[in-house]
């Protein structure tokens, strides 16, 4: 049984736009997968379906044998706490210190009043501090999130995801707003920690060349359809054309 099984996913937005047509793939724990495709190909939508932020119109997402597409919001919470999500705009709570931001990764495991007033136990703090160490950001722990540079913010959001002790890490264009050098740093951090934890990482990314050096497998999306799914070394010009210039290839 695969860790993640996406079956015939179809999603039509209320405005009639069909973001995903029929997307199917399986992924195992420990895989690092790049999700490539043009803007609007459905990459973000797919990632958001996997952690239940979007409900697909048809099809199923099965995680570890559990069909998450049919879960209630309450059940989803339990699933989500093991899914780290990294956003293009990091989405840290700017006014809170870095450590508190990272600790929010533990909230999914807490239900009492202590979680609301910001009381985290020693062992929870241990997890958060460990996560910050792994992305070399411990020296920034007490600073407010808005004081960090772009690359540091993204690394802090990786630390937040790691604090969830995730089985899956979903990253929605994590390096799109970074300069090339920082992008390499963040990508290597992301791939490294995912590998160390044996987590499945699904990273949507535009910089295909950058992705190649860090991932094992590539899934190419075009207009809501999977047009390529294979190991990184099979990625050739023909595939690239199918993913990025499908309109011209057809014409």
């Amino acid at each position: 049984m695969s860790l993640l099984d996406v079956r015939d996913l179809r999603l039509i937005y209320p405005n009639g736009h069909e973001a995903l047509k029929r997307v199917s793939f399986k992924a195992e724990a420990g895989e690092i997968i790049a999700l490539i495709g043009r803007s609007g190909a459905g990459k973000s939508t797919l990632l958001r379906c996997i952690n239940g932020l979007e409900r697909p119109t048809e099809g199923e997402v099965i995680l570890d044998g559990q069909v998450i597409t049919r879960m209630s919001e309450r059940q989803l919470r339990e699933v989500r706490r093991r899914i780290g999500f990294i956003w293009q705009e990091h989405n840290l709570v700017e006014r809170l210190p870095v450590l508190t931001n990272v600790l929010t990764g533990r909230l999914g495991y807490k239900s009492g009043l202590d979680g609301l007033i910001g009381y985290f136990t020693r062992s929870e703090r241990e997890v958060a501090v460990r996560s910050l160490e792994r992305v070399n950001l411990l020296h920034r722990a007490k600073q407010r999130a808005d004081r960090l540079s772009g690359g540091e913010k993204q690394r802090a959001s990786i630390a937040r995801a790691l604090t969830q002790q995730p089985r899956i890490i979903l990253a929605d264009e994590p390096v799109a707003s970074l300069d090339p050098e920082l992008a390499v740093q963040v990508m290597s951090d992301l791939a490294r920690v995912a590998r160390e934890d044996g987590a499945l990482a699904l990273i949507s990314i535009h910089q295909v060349e950058l992705a190649k050096s860090f991932v094992d497998r590539v899934i190419g999306l075009a207009q809501g359809v999977v047009v390529f799914d294979g190991p990184t070394d099979q990625l050739n010009q023909d595939v690239m054309d199918r993913v990025y210039r499908f309109d011209k290839v057809l014409a």
């Binding site: 932020l53 989500r80 999500f85 840290l92 709570v93 929010t104 807490k110 969830q164």
Partner: peptide
């Protein structure tokens, strides 16, 4: 709303999201 969404994605409950994202903002 993105900062709120990011916390919801970690599995935080509605009240937790409120305390850790809405209030600080």
């Amino acid at each position: 709303p993105q900062q709120v969404m990011a916390l919801r994605a970690t599995g935080a409950s509605g009240l937790q999201v409120f305390c850790f994202s809405v209030i600080p903002q």
